[in-house]
Amino acid sequence: MSLDQSDVERIAYLARLAIDEQDIPQYTENLSSILQLVDEMQAIDTTGVEPLAHPLDGEQRLRVDEVSEMNQREQLQSVAPATEEGLFLVPKVIE
């Protein structure tokens, strides 16, 4: 499977990545070659093999439901560009 320029533009848009017009051919080629590798792997017979959800062969450790994080708003907001009345301020987002 290979991508064309519009696929790359769409992927960049979905990931909110700003890319230079002139770099698109290069990205198209690189991403296509990754997909070709996937195509090669698809050819392998995986009948009877359980799908892998995670490369580590382990299971999730669970946490006890007890509050362990206290209010650190002042410290956490000290690195935010804009705050007011305890809120983080962001460019207006209403649709």
């Binding site: 809120l87 301020l89 962001v90 207006k92 987002v93 209403i94």
Partner: peptide
Amino acid sequence: FHGMSGID
């Protein structure tokens, strides 16, 4: 908020 949105 001065043309911005507040996030909680």
